[in-house]
């Protein structure tokens, strides 16, 4: 399977009201008390460690899972840890209604795929996307396929910069 195709599950970062949580900031994703960590593989266990209701995330997540969040995901600080902690856990795609600008760059530069998908909230609200649904993702054509029902959803495609950097693995290889 190519880098751009993988199978996993939808992890919907929802509130108690079953809505995608907006404005999840970098301190909720990777708290500043762990910023002294510089090894990527040690970052995973702190992922979402300060997000109410989601501190069990590192135990829950599996290789290939797709994280889905609300608007303005990753606002706040410029810490790369907030992207790397997901990479450490095998997350390869984050879909959010929108992203904080710095977060978007950090993700792209380290080869993490991110997709801005404003419709995500509606799909969650109407139950079309459910937590832990198994899915197949094809980033080349921008498609999410639900493995249970074969239903498909189009998502936006990666930008050219994203593709270029992903092909090299990191901005640093350019």
């Amino acid at each position: 399977m190519s880098l751009h195709q993988f199978t996993g599950r939808l992890i919907l970062l929802t509130s108690a009201q079953a809505r995608l949580i907006p404005d999840i900031d970098t301190d909720q994703i990777f708290h500043n008390q762990h910023l002294h960590i510089t090894e990527v593989d040690q970052m995973g266990r702190h992922a979402l460690g300060n997000l109410e209701g989601w501190t069990h995330f590192p135990e829950l997540v599996q290789d290939g899972d797709v994280v889905v969040a609300g608007a303005n995901f990753g606002s706040g600080s410029s810490r790369q840890h907030a992207v790397d902690c997901f990479r450490a856990l095998g997350v390869r795609l984050i879909i959010a209604e929108s992203f904080g600008a710095i977060y978007k760059r950090n993700a792209i530069n380290s080869g993490m795929s991110i997709i801005e998908f404003p419709q995500a909230g509606e799909l969650v609200k109407t139950g079309k996307w459910e937590h832990l649904n198994p899915i197949h993702v094809d980033l080349d054509i921008g498609l999410v396929k639900m493995m249970d029902t074969d239903e498909t959803f189009s998502i936006p495609q990666l930008s050219k910069v994203q593709r270029d950097i992903m092909a090299k693995g990191s901005l640093l290889n350019i």
Binding site: S77, Q80, N109
Partner: peptide, 19 residues
């Protein structure tokens, strides 16, 4: 002025540019 992550900045240290 713009805040960036450590990958971006390491690249900038060496290349003096970014996208």
């Amino acid at each position: 002025g713009q805040g960036m992550g450590d990958v971006d900045i390491a690249f900038g240290f060496r290349k003096g540019r970014t996208w």
